[in-house]
Nucleic acid binder design. Structure first.
Length: 260
DNA sequence: ATGGCTTGAGTGTCAAGA
């Protein structure tokens, strides 16, 4: 099973990139964040024509998450279980026996702001959700745009970013909590090039200069981590005209009996 | 450089992202 996560920053704008990418990359599951549309504007037909089943949890203008899968999507869940939230940031489903949780975690704006407090509350609720889900599904992936750079090596200029949004200690502590719950960071299961990132600011030629952050992640339960053979960032789509500011991250899993 | 782009909303020019 190949599973990928990609913050597309508006699916309506990025649909051609997503369709081209799916045609070139035979992934079994693709998790999308920032679709920025309600169901009415969501391109279900185009994605189904490309061979994917689709579930979406969307809203107007902001946020919005979706899971695409070649196999049936079962036991779909929308939103966090015990956190009242008008923002559509989470969707989960079971695919070929693997529980897939797709999340667009809050940005937080600025350390100490109201949005930062919301981010920390949201992450605490996700921690509870993850703990419960791991009890039920031994094969689990939590993936998406975490809006957390877990370590200094995930930041192009750690000194400049120290303590700031996406890098603050409380945010990183939540990321470590997800790991402590029994997950592994798929990307760090393997040797990786230095300065590997998944997001680059649109401004100031940040992509060309590789001034990025690694904030898009796939966390795998222990049993899934044991089956993971590769995890890479695909910078290709970031080079296209009108790109998303995020690149897709892909993990390849060797599952014992795959019925995709 | 507390924003150098980009998006959605909607027709002015914001809010929000990271």
């Amino acid at each position: 099973m190949k599973i990928a996560t990609w913050n597309v920053n508006s699916l309506r704008v990025r649909l051609p990139h997503v369709l081209d990418w799916l045609a070139a990359n035979a992934v079994d599951v693709l998790c999308l964040q920032e679709t920025k549309t309600e169901d009415a504007g969501f391109p279900f037909a185009d994605l189904q024509a490309a061979g994917y089943n689709v579930v979406h949890n969307g809203q107007k203008t902001y946020n919005g998450v979706a899971i695409l899968a070649r196999a049936p999507l079962l036991e779909t869940q929308r939103d966090l279980t015990d956190f009242a939230d008008e923002q559509k940031r989470l969707i989960a489903a079971t695919v070929s026996g693997v529980r897939v949780i797709c999340a667009y975690m809050p940005n937080g704006s600025e350390v100490g702001s109201d949005k930062y407090a919301y981010k920390l509350r949201w992450l605490a609720a996700l921690q509870r959700e993850l703990d419960a889900a791991l009890q039920r599904w031994p094969l689990l992936v939590l993936c998406g745009d975490f809006n957390i750079a877990p370590e200094d090596r995930d930041v192009h200029d750690p000194l400049a970013w120290r303590g700031r949004i996406l890098c603050s200690d409380p945010e990183r502590e939540f990321f470590r909590g997800f790991i402590a719950a029994g997950c592994r960071d798929a990307f760090r299961l393997f040797e990786q090039p230095a300065d590997s990132f998944s997001w680059w600011d649109y401004r100031n030629a940040a992509f060309r200069r590789n001034l990025g952050l690694r904030i898009d992640h796939l966390l795998l339960s222990a049993d899934l981590a044991a089956a993971c053979r590769e995890c890479v960032v695909d910078k290709g789509p970031r080079r296209l005209q009108r790109p998303s500011d995020h690149a897709p991250v892909i993990a390849r899993l060797d599952l014992p009996q795959e019925d995709a």
